[in-house]
Computed example of a mutant assay.
Amino acid sequence: MLFRQLYDRESSTFTYLIADPGSHRALLVDPVLGQVERDFKLLQELNLTLCFCVETHIHADHITGTHQLQSKTGCLSIVPAQAPAACADRHLEDGEVLTLGDISLKAIATPGHTDSHNAYWVNGDHILTGDALFIRGCGRTDFQSGDAGTLYDSVTQKLFTLPDATLVYPGHDYHGLTVSTIQEERQWNPRFKGRGRNTFIEFMNALDLPDPQKMMEAVPANECCGRVDSATAR
């Protein structure tokens, strides 16, 4: 498996390039509009055919690069089940598996940060956690129908029950961390360590965070799969 972790400094977003070396077929998870040329160049350099752009959720901090990448490659757009994106070619249900040669990408529904969110378990040893679980943190729960109790259940009942050695690759990082493991996060993540469900809810509800700077433009654009012209026309 070819696996690359790519970074957008402006939004602190990780994009993941995953490809099957045998067939040269690839997918991108959480592409960023401002990095489309970088990603497209890398695909060309590695002689890869982009088949899918996959979103963990409808983002509020950046506009997805899916629409532009579709225009360049003809790839399909994939979002979680129930995500408000009628433009998507496919909505992945909990437990559904997307295959690409020898690669399997299993959707694990992990709502809470938003009301429709998937983590993706890749080949049984990598978990792309989106904004449900960060390295030593987690996504916020105070907008887009987020819910702290639901996020606690998603992380503790679905992600923390994966094998200990599973590599954790988050959707964002703000501290220079790139990869962890399920065992590490279960043991050391301060958002969850020593907190029951009720205390987690109290903690998250008291955070009082400012809205993401691009929220008003990013959410409607991402509901249109990154088509900025469609979003502004709504």
Rank of each mutant, 00 (worst) to 15 (best):
T15G: 05
Y16C: 11
Y16N: 11
L17K: 06
I18P: 03
P21E: 06
P21F: 05
S23N: 02
H24W: 03
R25Y: 08
A26H: 14
D30H: 03
D30Q: 11
D30Y: 05
P31F: 01
P31H: 03
V32Y: 00
V32A: 08
G34M: 03
Q35C: 04
V36L: 03
V36A: 06
E37Y: 05
E37V: 09
E37S: 14
R38P: 01
D39W: 09
D39M: 12
K41L: 12
L42T: 11
L42F: 07
L42K: 06
L42D: 13
L43V: 06
E45P: 12
L46A: 08
L46M: 15
L46Y: 09
N47I: 02
L50W: 04
L50I: 02
L50G: 06
L50E: 02
C51H: 13
F52Q: 01
F52Y: 14
C53F: 01
C53T: 04
V54R: 13
E55M: 15
E55P: 00
T56Y: 04
T56Q: 04
H57A: 14
H57F: 07
I58Q: 06
H59L: 02
D61G: 15
I63V: 15
G65R: 01
L69A: 08
Q70A: 08
Q70M: 14
Q70T: 05
S71H: 13
S71D: 14
K72L: 15
T73I: 02
G74S: 05
G74I: 07
C75T: 05
C75G: 02
L76G: 02
L76Y: 00
S77Y: 02
S77T: 04
I78Y: 04
I78W: 12
V79M: 09
P80Q: 13
P80W: 06
P80T: 01
P80L: 11
A81W: 09
A81V: 01
A81G: 10
A83K: 11
P84F: 02
A85F: 03
C87Q: 14
A88K: 06
A88D: 01
R90E: 08
E93S: 14
D94N: 15
E96Y: 10
E96D: 15
L100G: 10
G101Q: 08
D102I: 12
I103Q: 15
I103M: 13
I103C: 15
L105N: 10
L105I: 15
L105T: 03
K106G: 06
K106M: 13
A107Y: 09
